[in-house]
Design a protein around this nucleic acid. Structure first.
Length: 152
DNA sequence: GCCAACGTTGGC
DNA sequence: GCCAACGTTGGC
């Protein structure tokens, strides 16, 4: 089993929004970055554990845990001209963007702020805490996962 | 294939 | 709201 971290702006989609879908999976759509796409398309497996991270908000940080609940498939929002994620270069025949389904597991007991993660030396190699990092989906090692949960 | 211009992300 | 960092686009 692998571990991951996925970012979302809470104004667009928050951990509370995910929780509000009990027993349902949620498609993690709208990712338009090749590296992040490749993680979803090629490396994520059902059952992988994922930190939910709130970005671009008052207190950016880890707010919960979810689980990969469905294998990857082409992101349908890329085909929809009405969608803000529409990409005319992606077609059902030759899809460019992919997503996975996720499901809610739990909130963390508190928001674990980015500022705190940055001060925690064992996490210094995480892309998340490195300057200028914009990757919205990244792998997390088992050691990092356990470390972060100890900060909870 | 280079690289300047532009757009986006996301912390602060 | 600002702006640094970075990815993408397109002219040449």
């Amino acid at each position: 089993m692998k571990y991951w971290l996925m970012k979302s702006e809470p104004e667009a989609f928050s951990i509370d929004d995910l929780q509000a879908r009990p027993g349902q999976t949620e498609p993690w759509d709208g990712v338009r970055n090749y590296q992040a796409r490749n993680f979803m398309r090629d490396d994520m497996r059902i059952g992988d554990q994922v930190f939910f991270y709130h970005s671009n908000c008052e207190v950016p940080g880890i707010v919960g845990i979810m689980e990969v609940a469905g294998k990857s498939y082409p992101d349908p929002t890329a085909f929809d001209p009405q969608s803000k994620y529409f990409d005319p270069k992606s077609s059902p025949d030759q899809p460019r963007w992919f997503l996975v389904e996720v499901k809610y597991i739990r909130h963390t007991r508190r928001t674990i702020p980015l500022a705190e993660l940055k001060e925690h030396d064992p996490l210094e190699n995480m892309p998340l805490v490195r300057k200028g990092n914009r990757l919205s989906i990244m792998p997390v090692t088992k050691e990092q996962w356990d470390d972060i949960l100890r900060l909870e």
